[in-house]
């Protein structure tokens, strides 16, 4: 479904590429965890998937069509099919829980409808259902800045769910949460992934979480792929190869 062919990304002014010559493919049903030290290129890799980060060399293909060959409209189509969650949640402050979730539909609606907040009652119902799915027990009208980190991430997941995504991307979604909350969020992600038969690709620092939830682990070091395999194949030696200086 998603293919990386010789993908490299070099930021302007950087001496070395952030990711180098990546060749990977992902199919429906895979729950992939991406491991690597800070600066290994994990975020760049994740952002290349939905075109938030343009590639310098190579191609990222969706169903055999390169992102760079797609029209602007097709690119937006790819993005609305991709639910993405972030380390800092990236919610819109001073807006309520339900309003934030409804912004997940922005890709599907006309600009004037988004501007005027013209959402149908069924769309509002879907937003409320998404709140229930992520087991969020706060008032939908509550402002997001008044929520805890775990609650904010649940809102972000609900925003991604309402997109009815085919692909779920997570850029270190649990890095700023305590271990208990992190595990609950991962359980939720895995459950949603299984129910909807998605491709999920999640950056994570916690090897334990990756081994517990992933169906496949890939690891990057200095932008290069150094591991791609099953969680049970990921051993101490591999751990040292990723994280040791």
């Amino acid at each position: 479904m998603i293919k990386f062919e010789n993908v490299s990304v070099k930021y302007p002014g950087a001496a070395e590429p952030a990711i180098k010559d990546l060749n990977l493919s992902f199919e429906r049903g895979e729950f992939v965890c991406v491991l690597g030290r800070s600066g290994a290129g994990k975020s760049t890799f994740i952002r290349c998937i939905n075109g938030l980060q343009p590639v310098s060399e190579g191609t990222v293909k969706w169903n055999e069509k390169s992102l760079s060959d797609m029209t602007h409209k097709e690119n937006l189509e790819i993005r609305r099919k991709t639910g993405m969650i972030f380390q800092q949640f990236n919610l819109i402050p001073r807006m309520s829980v339900v309003q934030n979730i409804l912004t997940g539909l922005f890709g599907y609606k006309k600009s004037y409808q988004n501007l005027l907040g013209l959402f149908s009652s069924s769309e509002r119902m879907t937003a409320i259902e998404a709140i229930q799915q992520v087991e969020l027990t706060v008032e939908p009208t509550r402002r997001v800045e008044n929520l805890s980190g775990g609650q904010k991430q649940r809102v972000a997941i609900a925003r991604a769910l309402i997109q009815n995504p085919k692909v779920f991307l997570g850029d270190e979604p649990v890095a700023s949460l305590d271990p208990g909350t992190a595990e609950r969020i991962f359980s939720l992600l895995k459950e949603t992934h299984s129910k909807r038969n998605l491709v999920s690709i999640i950056n994570v620092h916690d090897v334990g979480l990756a081994k517990k939830f992933a169906t496949r682990i890939i690891a990057l070091r200095e932008g290069k792929l150094i591991f791609d395999g099953l969680p049970e194949q990921f051993n101490e030696e591999m751990y040292a190869a990723i994280y040791n200086q």
């Binding site: 993005r79 609305r80 972030f86 919610l91 890709g107 988004n114 997109q163």
Partner: peptide, 9 residues
């Protein structure tokens, strides 16, 4: 970034 990611104009 989140708004770009959902495919908003």
């Amino acid at each position: 970034e989140a708004m770009s990611a959902v495919g908003a104009q």
